[in-house]
């Protein structure tokens, strides 16, 4: 054999394979999540269409009032995860809650595993505490599920969650630091920033491509608030708060 060449080729081949595996492995470990089609994702068909619309309307009204995003999910399968693990991952994947405020709540029901969970985003952990989430599950949802009325269980659960969220913090809880410190909301600062850039650009250089640029900026920003047809997560994150139960 002529020495170096095949060795070098083998090396690059091996490193390509290793590189491929590095790319693939995280994908294999991923959970397959349902698509976020609305505020109620009823994969396991626990709610009739009218109930679904009713719950959706409750959740939409709550978001426009408080900006909290609450989403109901019923699942066919937890894909061999615990509902706690699935809940956090799903909440992070969908990015429920507004960015920076992390004020999202997921109500998960997996009838095939007989598991349910209220998953609370970082920003609401002080309002909807683990203990309160547990009380909702144990006192409202589980009795309904045990008696066979799953629809009632879900609707009652949602109603209680919204009630707790509206009531606000029971104890004195420090407000989320990032919003409260500035009297000026962040988007105002954002616009001032843009205004400065625009004036700088207008006075000096680069007149071209300006309009396209700013169009792109603003559309990405407000997606979480869209009330009408589409619904999407606002960029919130989760840290495992909440409570679970089984019936």
């Amino acid at each position: 054999m002529n020495g170096k060449r095949p060795a070098a080729r083998a090396f690059s081949f091996v490193s390509a394979i290793v590189g491929l595996f590095l790319l693939i492995t995280p994908a294999v470990a991923q959970i397959q999540f349902p698509e976020l089609t609305g505020r109620v994702v009823d994969e396991a068909n626990l709610l009739s269409d009218t109930k679904e619309a009713e719950v959706t309307e409750m959740l939409r009204a709550h978001e426009s009032e408080t900006s909290n995003q609450v989403v109901v999910v019923t699942l066919q399968s937890l894909q061999d995860r615990t509902i706690e693990e699935y809940g956090v991952e799903l909440g992070r994947h969908w990015q429920i809650g507004q960015e920076g405020r992390n004020n999202g709540v997921l109500l998960l029901v997996a009838p095939n595993e007989r598991a349910m969970r209220i998953e609370v985003g970082y920003g609401l952990e002080g309002i909807l505490t683990d203990a309160q989430a547990s009380v909702i599950i144990q006192n409202k949802m589980i009795p309904a599920f045990r008696s066979g009325d799953r629809t009632k269980g879900v609707v009652e659960g949602v109603r209680e969650i919204l009630k707790v969220l509206k009531a606000g913090p029971q104890e004195v809880v420090a407000p989320p630091p990032d919003d409260s410190r500035f009297p000026v909301p962040p988007f105002v600062i954002f616009f001032i920033f843009i205004a400065i850039i625009m004036t700088l650009r207008a006075t000096s250089v680069l007149p071209s491509g300006r309009s396209q640029h700013f169009g792109g900026f603003s559309s990405g920003r407000s997606s979480g608030f869209s009330g009408g047809g589409g619904f999407s997560g606002g960029g919130g994150s989760f840290g495992g708060g909440g409570s679970s139960g089984s019936w």
């Binding site: 706690e84 693990e85 956090v88 505490t129 683990d130 203990a131 989430a133 547990s134 009380v135 144990q138 989760f238 840290g239 495992g240 708060g241 909440g242 409570s243 679970s244």
Partner: peptide, 18 residues
């Protein structure tokens, strides 16, 4: 006790996430 238990469970779960 129920409240403490649920808080402990919640904390254990947050711990797992962290």
């Amino acid at each position: 006790f129920l409240a403490l238990q649920s808080q402990l469970e919640g904390t254990e779960n947050r711990l797992a996430v962290a």
